[in-house]
Design a protein around this nucleic acid. Structure first.
Lengths: 212, 212
DNA sequence: TGTACATCAGTGAACGCGCGTTCACTGATGTAC
DNA sequence: TGTACATCAGTGAACGCGCGTTCACTGATGTAC
Protein backbone atom coordinates (compact mmCIF):
# COMPACT_ATOMS: atom_id res chain seq x y z
CA UNK A 1 0.00 0.00 0.00
CA UNK A 2 1.88 3.01 -1.25
CA UNK A 3 0.16 6.05 0.16
CA UNK A 4 2.38 8.44 -1.71
CA UNK A 5 1.60 7.10 -5.17
CA UNK A 6 -0.01 10.37 -6.21
CA UNK A 7 2.53 12.44 -8.14
CA UNK A 8 0.12 15.38 -8.50
CA UNK A 9 2.67 17.55 -10.17
CA UNK A 10 2.46 21.05 -8.90
CA UNK A 11 2.00 23.95 -11.27
CA UNK A 12 5.07 26.01 -11.72
CA UNK A 13 4.98 29.35 -9.92
CA UNK A 14 4.76 32.50 -12.06
CA UNK A 15 7.78 34.69 -12.55
CA UNK A 16 8.17 36.67 -9.35
CA UNK A 17 6.51 34.13 -7.07
CA UNK A 18 9.39 31.75 -6.51
CA UNK A 19 9.08 32.09 -2.75
CA UNK A 20 5.66 30.52 -2.90
CA UNK A 21 7.19 27.06 -3.13
CA UNK A 22 9.24 27.85 -0.07
CA UNK A 23 6.11 28.27 2.03
CA UNK A 24 4.62 25.09 0.63
CA UNK A 25 7.80 23.19 1.47
CA UNK A 26 7.69 24.39 5.07
CA UNK A 27 4.02 23.46 5.36
CA UNK A 28 4.56 20.01 3.87
CA UNK A 29 7.53 19.33 6.12
CA UNK A 30 5.53 20.33 9.16
CA UNK A 31 2.73 18.02 8.06
CA UNK A 32 5.07 15.11 7.45
CA UNK A 33 6.78 15.60 10.78
CA UNK A 34 3.40 15.59 12.45
CA UNK A 35 2.33 12.32 10.88
CA UNK A 36 5.61 10.41 11.09
CA UNK A 37 7.01 11.99 14.24
CA UNK A 38 10.54 11.25 13.23
CA UNK A 39 12.90 13.67 11.59
CA UNK A 40 14.89 10.79 10.13
CA UNK A 41 11.90 9.46 8.23
CA UNK A 42 11.00 12.85 6.75
CA UNK A 43 13.17 12.69 3.67
CA UNK A 44 13.91 15.23 1.01
CA UNK A 45 12.17 12.96 -1.46
CA UNK A 46 9.06 12.64 0.72
CA UNK A 47 8.81 16.40 1.15
CA UNK A 48 9.26 17.03 -2.56
CA UNK A 49 6.66 14.39 -3.36
CA UNK A 50 4.16 15.85 -0.91
CA UNK A 51 4.43 19.24 -2.58
CA UNK A 52 4.44 17.76 -6.09
CA UNK A 53 7.87 18.90 -7.05
CA UNK A 54 11.22 17.25 -7.81
CA UNK A 55 13.73 16.78 -4.96
CA UNK A 56 16.33 19.22 -6.32
CA UNK A 57 13.73 22.00 -6.31
CA UNK A 58 14.10 22.13 -2.53
CA UNK A 59 17.68 23.32 -2.92
CA UNK A 60 16.47 26.39 -4.74
CA UNK A 61 15.01 27.57 -1.44
CA UNK A 62 17.07 25.94 1.33
CA UNK A 63 20.82 25.29 1.44
CA UNK A 64 20.29 21.83 2.91
CA UNK A 65 17.84 19.62 4.75
CA UNK A 66 18.86 20.88 8.19
CA UNK A 67 17.92 24.45 7.32
CA UNK A 68 14.43 23.36 6.32
CA UNK A 69 13.91 21.30 9.48
CA UNK A 70 15.21 24.12 11.64
CA UNK A 71 12.78 26.59 10.14
CA UNK A 72 9.89 24.24 10.84
CA UNK A 73 11.02 23.83 14.44
CA UNK A 74 11.20 27.58 14.92
CA UNK A 75 7.65 27.89 13.62
CA UNK A 76 6.36 25.23 15.99
CA UNK A 77 8.13 26.86 18.88
CA UNK A 78 6.26 30.07 18.10
CA UNK A 79 2.98 28.20 18.06
CA UNK A 80 3.74 26.69 21.45
CA UNK A 81 4.46 30.14 22.83
CA UNK A 82 1.21 31.49 21.35
CA UNK A 83 -0.83 28.63 22.80
CA UNK A 84 0.53 29.36 26.26
CA UNK A 85 -0.12 33.08 26.05
CA UNK A 86 -3.60 32.53 24.75
CA UNK A 87 -4.40 30.25 27.67
CA UNK A 88 -3.14 32.81 30.20
CA UNK A 89 -5.21 35.69 28.83
CA UNK A 90 -7.64 37.04 31.37
CA UNK A 91 -6.48 34.87 34.24
CA UNK A 92 -6.20 37.32 37.08
CA UNK A 93 -4.95 35.13 39.91
CA UNK A 94 -1.17 34.83 39.48
CA UNK A 95 -1.08 31.29 40.87
CA UNK A 96 -3.86 30.21 38.57
CA UNK A 97 -1.99 31.87 35.71
CA UNK A 98 1.07 29.75 36.40
CA UNK A 99 -1.01 26.57 36.48
CA UNK A 100 -2.86 27.49 33.32
CA UNK A 101 0.43 28.07 31.52
CA UNK A 102 1.65 24.68 32.61
CA UNK A 103 -1.52 22.94 31.44
CA UNK A 104 -1.32 24.69 28.08
CA UNK A 105 2.29 23.60 27.69
CA UNK A 106 1.51 19.97 28.45
CA UNK A 107 -1.61 20.02 26.29
CA UNK A 108 0.31 21.37 23.31
CA UNK A 109 2.95 18.69 23.76
CA UNK A 110 0.49 15.84 24.11
CA UNK A 111 -1.61 17.04 21.18
CA UNK A 112 1.46 17.49 18.96
CA UNK A 113 3.77 14.78 20.28
CA UNK A 114 5.82 14.50 17.12
CA UNK A 115 6.50 18.19 16.88
CA UNK A 116 7.30 18.34 20.58
CA UNK A 117 9.69 15.49 20.05
CA UNK A 118 11.47 17.37 17.31
CA UNK A 119 11.63 20.48 19.45
CA UNK A 120 12.94 19.01 22.70
CA UNK A 121 13.42 15.25 22.57
CA UNK A 122 15.36 14.44 19.44
CA UNK A 123 19.13 14.13 19.74
CA UNK A 124 20.66 17.56 19.40
CA UNK A 125 17.30 19.30 19.74
CA UNK A 126 18.50 22.08 21.98
CA UNK A 127 21.97 22.18 20.54
CA UNK A 128 21.24 25.45 18.81
CA UNK A 129 19.38 26.91 21.76
CA UNK A 130 21.90 28.96 23.70
CA UNK A 131 21.19 30.67 26.97
CA UNK A 132 20.73 34.14 25.50
CA UNK A 133 18.50 32.89 22.74
CA UNK A 134 16.26 31.02 25.12
CA UNK A 135 16.07 33.87 27.59
CA UNK A 136 15.11 36.28 24.83
CA UNK A 137 12.50 33.86 23.55
CA UNK A 138 9.05 35.20 24.16
CA UNK A 139 7.88 31.89 25.63
CA UNK A 140 10.46 31.68 28.38
CA UNK A 141 10.51 35.42 28.94
CA UNK A 142 6.77 35.42 29.46
CA UNK A 143 7.04 32.60 31.96
CA UNK A 144 9.68 34.50 33.92
CA UNK A 145 7.40 37.53 34.05
CA UNK A 146 4.50 35.38 35.23
CA UNK A 147 6.65 33.99 38.02
CA UNK A 148 7.77 37.50 39.00
CA UNK A 149 4.19 38.64 39.16
CA UNK A 150 3.21 35.77 41.41
CA UNK A 151 6.21 36.46 43.58
CA UNK A 152 5.58 40.18 43.90
CA UNK A 153 2.02 39.63 45.03
CA UNK A 154 3.43 37.38 47.71
CA UNK A 155 1.68 34.33 46.35
CA UNK A 156 4.82 32.21 45.90
CA UNK A 157 8.41 32.06 46.93
CA UNK A 158 10.95 32.45 44.13
CA UNK A 159 14.39 31.44 45.28
CA UNK A 160 16.97 32.38 44.37
CA UNK A 161 15.15 34.30 41.66
CA UNK A 162 12.31 34.21 39.16
CA UNK A 163 14.52 32.80 36.41
CA UNK A 164 15.46 29.75 38.47
CA UNK A 165 11.85 29.17 39.47
CA UNK A 166 10.77 29.48 35.85
CA UNK A 167 13.30 26.83 34.90
CA UNK A 168 11.90 24.55 37.58
CA UNK A 169 8.36 25.05 36.36
CA UNK A 170 9.51 24.29 32.86
CA UNK A 171 11.19 21.11 34.05
CA UNK A 172 8.03 19.95 35.82
CA UNK A 173 5.77 20.58 32.84
CA UNK A 174 8.32 19.08 30.48
CA UNK A 175 8.49 16.02 32.72
CA UNK A 176 4.81 15.24 32.39
CA UNK A 177 4.78 16.01 28.68
CA UNK A 178 7.84 14.01 27.73
CA UNK A 179 6.96 11.05 29.92
CA UNK A 180 3.49 10.74 28.45
CA UNK A 181 4.93 11.09 24.97
CA UNK A 182 7.87 8.78 25.62
CA UNK A 183 5.94 5.96 27.31
CA UNK A 184 2.61 6.24 25.53
CA UNK A 185 1.26 2.78 26.28
CA UNK A 186 1.31 3.29 30.02
CA UNK A 187 -2.10 4.12 31.55
CA UNK A 188 -1.30 7.63 32.66
CA UNK A 189 -4.14 9.19 34.64
CA UNK A 190 -6.07 11.88 32.81
CA UNK A 191 -5.22 14.44 35.46
CA UNK A 192 -1.50 13.71 35.76
CA UNK A 193 -0.51 17.17 34.59
CA UNK A 194 -3.04 18.83 36.90
CA UNK A 195 -1.89 16.90 39.94
CA UNK A 196 1.83 17.36 39.33
CA UNK A 197 1.57 21.07 38.63
CA UNK A 198 -0.76 21.70 41.55
CA UNK A 199 1.46 19.81 43.95
CA UNK A 200 4.54 21.60 42.70
CA UNK A 201 2.97 25.04 42.93
CA UNK A 202 1.67 24.17 46.40
CA UNK A 203 5.29 23.50 47.27
CA UNK A 204 6.10 27.00 46.03
CA UNK A 205 3.35 28.61 48.06
CA UNK A 206 4.12 26.94 51.37
CA UNK A 207 6.22 28.82 53.87
CA UNK A 208 9.95 28.96 53.32
CA UNK A 209 11.75 25.94 54.66
CA UNK A 210 13.49 26.43 57.96
CA UNK A 211 16.51 24.32 57.06
CA UNK A 212 19.59 26.21 58.29
CA UNK B 1 40.53 10.28 10.81
CA UNK B 2 39.06 6.84 10.86
CA UNK B 3 38.91 5.72 14.45
CA UNK B 4 37.62 2.29 13.55
CA UNK B 5 40.50 1.37 11.28
CA UNK B 6 41.61 -1.40 13.61
CA UNK B 7 40.22 -4.68 12.38
CA UNK B 8 41.71 -6.60 15.33
CA UNK B 9 40.13 -9.83 14.27
CA UNK B 10 38.78 -11.64 17.25
CA UNK B 11 39.82 -15.21 17.96
CA UNK B 12 37.17 -17.74 17.21
CA UNK B 13 35.47 -19.20 20.28
CA UNK B 14 36.14 -22.84 21.12
CA UNK B 15 33.55 -25.46 20.44
CA UNK B 16 30.96 -25.12 23.20
CA UNK B 17 31.57 -21.42 23.89
CA UNK B 18 29.53 -19.88 21.10
CA UNK B 19 27.52 -17.79 23.56
CA UNK B 20 30.67 -15.95 24.49
CA UNK B 21 30.39 -13.77 21.40
CA UNK B 22 26.85 -12.95 22.40
CA UNK B 23 28.05 -11.29 25.60
CA UNK B 24 30.75 -9.42 23.76
CA UNK B 25 28.18 -8.14 21.25
CA UNK B 26 25.96 -6.83 24.03
CA UNK B 27 28.91 -5.15 25.73
CA UNK B 28 30.11 -3.55 22.50
CA UNK B 29 26.63 -2.32 21.64
CA UNK B 30 26.26 -0.77 25.07
CA UNK B 31 29.64 0.92 24.64
CA UNK B 32 28.77 2.26 21.20
CA UNK B 33 25.41 3.55 22.36
CA UNK B 34 27.14 5.32 25.22
CA UNK B 35 29.63 7.07 22.98
CA UNK B 36 27.34 7.96 20.07
CA UNK B 37 24.09 8.35 21.97
CA UNK B 38 22.04 7.53 18.94
CA UNK B 39 20.57 4.16 18.15
CA UNK B 40 20.47 5.02 14.46
CA UNK B 41 24.20 5.52 14.30
CA UNK B 42 24.99 2.25 16.05
CA UNK B 43 25.04 0.01 13.02
CA UNK B 44 25.42 -3.72 12.68
CA UNK B 45 28.70 -3.10 10.92
CA UNK B 46 30.00 -0.85 13.69
CA UNK B 47 29.11 -3.39 16.37
CA UNK B 48 30.72 -6.23 14.44
CA UNK B 49 33.82 -4.15 13.87
CA UNK B 50 34.07 -3.21 17.55
CA UNK B 51 34.05 -6.87 18.53
CA UNK B 52 36.38 -7.88 15.70
CA UNK B 53 33.94 -10.10 13.88
CA UNK B 54 32.10 -10.03 10.55
CA UNK B 55 28.60 -8.49 10.41
CA UNK B 56 26.75 -11.74 9.66
CA UNK B 57 28.17 -13.29 12.84
CA UNK B 58 25.71 -11.17 14.80
CA UNK B 59 22.83 -13.09 13.26
CA UNK B 60 24.11 -16.29 14.81
CA UNK B 61 23.13 -14.85 18.20
CA UNK B 62 20.31 -12.38 17.56
CA UNK B 63 17.40 -12.64 15.10
CA UNK B 64 17.78 -8.99 14.11
CA UNK B 65 19.18 -5.65 15.17
CA UNK B 66 16.13 -4.74 17.26
CA UNK B 67 16.57 -7.78 19.50
CA UNK B 68 20.14 -6.76 20.27
CA UNK B 69 19.24 -3.16 21.05
CA UNK B 70 16.32 -4.26 23.21
CA UNK B 71 18.55 -6.52 25.29
CA UNK B 72 20.96 -3.67 25.89
CA UNK B 73 18.11 -1.41 26.98
CA UNK B 74 16.86 -3.99 29.43
CA UNK B 75 20.33 -4.22 30.95
CA UNK B 76 20.60 -0.47 31.35
CA UNK B 77 17.18 -0.34 32.92
CA UNK B 78 18.37 -2.83 35.51
CA UNK B 79 21.41 -0.70 36.25
CA UNK B 80 19.22 2.35 36.75
CA UNK B 81 17.09 0.41 39.21
CA UNK B 82 20.17 -0.78 41.06
CA UNK B 83 21.60 2.73 41.28
CA UNK B 84 18.38 3.98 42.85
CA UNK B 85 18.16 1.17 45.37
CA UNK B 86 21.78 1.58 46.33
CA UNK B 87 21.23 5.27 47.00
CA UNK B 88 18.20 4.59 49.22
CA UNK B 89 19.97 2.03 51.42
CA UNK B 90 20.11 3.11 55.02
CA UNK B 91 18.03 6.25 54.61
CA UNK B 92 15.63 6.05 57.51
CA UNK B 93 13.51 9.17 57.01
CA UNK B 94 10.85 8.28 54.40
CA UNK B 95 10.79 11.79 52.96
CA UNK B 96 14.54 11.84 52.64
CA UNK B 97 14.34 8.41 51.03
CA UNK B 98 12.03 9.76 48.33
CA UNK B 99 14.32 12.69 47.65
CA UNK B 100 17.40 10.48 47.54
CA UNK B 101 15.73 8.20 45.03
CA UNK B 102 14.92 11.18 42.84
CA UNK B 103 18.47 12.48 42.96
CA UNK B 104 19.84 9.07 42.09
CA UNK B 105 17.47 8.84 39.13
CA UNK B 106 18.49 12.23 37.77
CA UNK B 107 22.16 11.57 38.42
CA UNK B 108 22.06 8.31 36.51
CA UNK B 109 20.33 10.02 33.61
CA UNK B 110 22.71 12.95 33.46
CA UNK B 111 25.77 10.73 33.81
CA UNK B 112 24.54 8.34 31.11
CA UNK B 113 22.59 10.68 28.85
CA UNK B 114 22.83 8.50 25.75
CA UNK B 115 21.59 5.40 27.50
CA UNK B 116 18.82 7.37 29.16
CA UNK B 117 17.88 8.68 25.75
CA UNK B 118 17.62 5.18 24.38
CA UNK B 119 15.56 4.08 27.35
CA UNK B 120 13.01 6.90 27.50
CA UNK B 121 13.56 9.56 24.86
CA UNK B 122 13.99 7.83 21.54
CA UNK B 123 10.92 7.40 19.36
CA UNK B 124 9.13 4.24 20.38
CA UNK B 125 11.18 3.88 23.55
CA UNK B 126 8.32 2.85 25.81
CA UNK B 127 6.39 1.12 23.06
CA UNK B 128 7.21 -2.25 24.52
CA UNK B 129 6.64 -1.15 28.10
CA UNK B 130 3.08 -2.09 28.98
CA UNK B 131 1.37 -1.25 32.22
CA UNK B 132 1.82 -4.66 33.80
CA UNK B 133 5.44 -4.91 32.79
CA UNK B 134 6.25 -1.53 34.23
CA UNK B 135 4.34 -2.14 37.44
CA UNK B 136 6.14 -5.43 37.97
CA UNK B 137 9.47 -3.78 37.27
CA UNK B 138 11.55 -3.63 40.39
CA UNK B 139 12.39 0.02 39.85
CA UNK B 140 8.83 1.29 39.73
CA UNK B 141 7.60 -1.24 42.30
CA UNK B 142 10.24 -0.06 44.75
CA UNK B 143 9.24 3.54 44.23
CA UNK B 144 5.61 2.69 44.94
CA UNK B 145 6.63 0.99 48.18
CA UNK B 146 8.73 3.99 49.16
CA UNK B 147 5.74 6.26 48.61
CA UNK B 148 3.51 3.95 50.63
CA UNK B 149 5.96 3.98 53.47
CA UNK B 150 6.10 7.75 53.51
CA UNK B 151 2.33 7.87 53.38
CA UNK B 152 1.79 5.38 56.18
CA UNK B 153 4.05 7.30 58.52
CA UNK B 154 1.91 10.32 57.80
CA UNK B 155 4.76 12.20 56.20
CA UNK B 156 3.04 12.86 52.88
CA UNK B 157 -0.35 12.74 51.28
CA UNK B 158 -0.81 10.18 48.53
CA UNK B 159 -3.96 10.85 46.54
CA UNK B 160 -5.67 9.01 45.12
CA UNK B 161 -3.10 6.30 45.89
CA UNK B 162 0.59 5.53 46.09
CA UNK B 163 0.76 4.41 42.47
CA UNK B 164 -0.48 7.77 41.19
CA UNK B 165 1.91 9.63 43.46
CA UNK B 166 4.78 7.43 42.30
CA UNK B 167 3.93 8.30 38.71
CA UNK B 168 4.02 11.98 39.58
CA UNK B 169 7.38 11.65 41.27
CA UNK B 170 8.66 9.82 38.23
CA UNK B 171 7.37 12.61 35.99
CA UNK B 172 9.11 15.27 38.06
CA UNK B 173 12.46 13.47 38.12
CA UNK B 174 12.15 12.61 34.45
CA UNK B 175 11.42 16.26 33.70
CA UNK B 176 14.68 17.49 35.16
CA UNK B 177 16.66 14.65 33.63
CA UNK B 178 15.27 14.90 30.13
CA UNK B 179 15.35 18.68 30.04
CA UNK B 180 19.01 18.82 31.02
CA UNK B 181 19.78 16.09 28.50
CA UNK B 182 17.62 17.57 25.77
CA UNK B 183 18.79 21.18 26.07
CA UNK B 184 22.38 20.65 27.19
CA UNK B 185 23.81 24.05 26.29
CA UNK B 186 21.49 25.93 28.61
CA UNK B 187 23.12 27.02 31.89
CA UNK B 188 21.06 24.83 34.19
CA UNK B 189 21.79 25.50 37.84
CA UNK B 190 23.73 22.77 39.59
CA UNK B 191 20.97 22.24 42.12
CA UNK B 192 18.04 22.15 39.69
CA UNK B 193 17.16 18.58 40.60
CA UNK B 194 17.44 19.30 44.32
CA UNK B 195 15.23 22.34 44.15
CA UNK B 196 12.55 20.79 41.96
CA UNK B 197 12.30 17.61 43.97
CA UNK B 198 12.31 19.44 47.29
CA UNK B 199 9.62 21.84 46.20
CA UNK B 200 7.50 19.03 44.82
CA UNK B 201 7.82 16.90 47.95
CA UNK B 202 7.04 19.96 50.06
CA UNK B 203 3.84 20.18 48.05
CA UNK B 204 3.13 16.58 49.03
CA UNK B 205 3.75 17.23 52.71
CA UNK B 206 1.58 20.30 53.02
CA UNK B 207 -1.94 19.91 54.33
CA UNK B 208 -4.58 18.58 51.97
CA UNK B 209 -6.14 21.23 49.82
CA UNK B 210 -9.57 22.38 50.88
CA UNK B 211 -10.93 22.72 47.35
CA UNK B 212 -14.39 21.09 47.35
C1' DT C 1 6.68 45.76 -33.88
C1' DG C 2 9.84 42.16 -33.97
C1' DT C 3 13.57 39.61 -32.17
C1' DA C 4 17.67 38.29 -29.49
C1' DC C 5 18.74 37.55 -24.94
C1' DA C 6 18.73 37.06 -19.88
C1' DT C 7 16.35 35.24 -16.12
C1' DC C 8 13.62 32.42 -13.43
C1' DA C 9 11.57 28.13 -11.68
C1' DG C 10 12.15 24.41 -12.02
C1' DT C 11 13.37 18.86 -14.06
C1' DG C 12 15.73 14.09 -14.85
C1' DA C 13 19.30 11.35 -14.18
C1' DA C 14 22.88 10.16 -11.69
C1' DC C 15 26.68 10.34 -7.84
C1' DG C 16 28.42 7.80 -3.82
C1' DC C 17 27.24 6.15 0.53
C1' DG C 18 25.86 3.22 4.37
C1' DC C 19 22.36 0.46 5.80
C1' DG C 20 20.19 -4.45 7.44
C1' DT C 21 20.19 -8.80 5.88
C1' DT C 22 21.01 -13.22 3.08
C1' DC C 23 23.50 -16.85 0.96
C1' DA C 24 26.78 -20.07 -0.09
C1' DC C 25 30.94 -21.23 1.77
C1' DT C 26 35.07 -22.68 5.11
C1' DG C 27 37.80 -24.86 8.26
C1' DA C 28 38.59 -26.47 12.82
C1' DT C 29 36.88 -29.82 16.16
C1' DG C 30 34.49 -33.45 18.18
C1' DT C 31 32.14 -38.18 17.51
C1' DA C 32 30.63 -42.81 15.70
C1' DC C 33 32.06 -46.92 13.83
C1' DT D 1 43.69 -46.92 15.82
C1' DG D 2 42.14 -44.80 11.79
C1' DT D 3 38.75 -42.52 9.17
C1' DA D 4 34.35 -40.74 7.51
C1' DC D 5 31.10 -37.62 8.99
C1' DA D 6 28.39 -34.13 11.54
C1' DT D 7 28.58 -29.95 13.89
C1' DC D 8 29.91 -25.57 15.26
C1' DA D 9 31.53 -20.80 14.76
C1' DG D 10 32.11 -18.28 12.00
C1' DT D 11 33.54 -15.56 6.82
C1' DG D 12 33.19 -12.92 2.15
C1' DA D 13 30.60 -11.21 -1.17
C1' DA D 14 26.62 -9.58 -2.55
C1' DC D 15 21.39 -8.22 -2.45
C1' DG D 16 18.29 -4.22 -2.77
C1' DC D 17 17.14 -0.04 -0.70
C1' DG D 18 16.72 4.82 0.42
C1' DC D 19 19.29 8.58 1.52
C1' DG D 20 21.18 13.79 0.64
C1' DT D 21 23.03 16.15 -2.90
C1' DT D 22 24.94 17.64 -7.62
C1' DC D 23 24.95 18.57 -12.41
C1' DA D 24 23.66 19.65 -16.83
C1' DC D 25 19.53 20.74 -18.85
C1' DT D 26 14.66 22.90 -20.19
C1' DG D 27 11.14 25.84 -21.33
C1' DA D 28 8.25 29.65 -20.23
C1' DT D 29 8.41 34.61 -19.41
C1' DG D 30 9.92 39.17 -19.17
C1' DT D 31 13.16 42.91 -21.10
C1' DA D 32 16.37 45.69 -24.14
C1' DC D 33 17.16 47.35 -28.50
Amino acid sequence: MKTSSTPARRLRAPRGQGGQLRDELVAATERLLATTGDEESVSIRAIANAVGVSPPAIYLHFPDKDALIFEVCALRFGELADAIEEAAIGVADPIEALLVRGYAYVRFAVEHPEQYRVLFLRPGAGRKLTADELRSTSAFGNLIRAVEEAHQTGAIRAEPDAIATAMELWAVAHGVASLVIGVPDFPWPEDLADRVLQTYVRGLTSAAVSSS
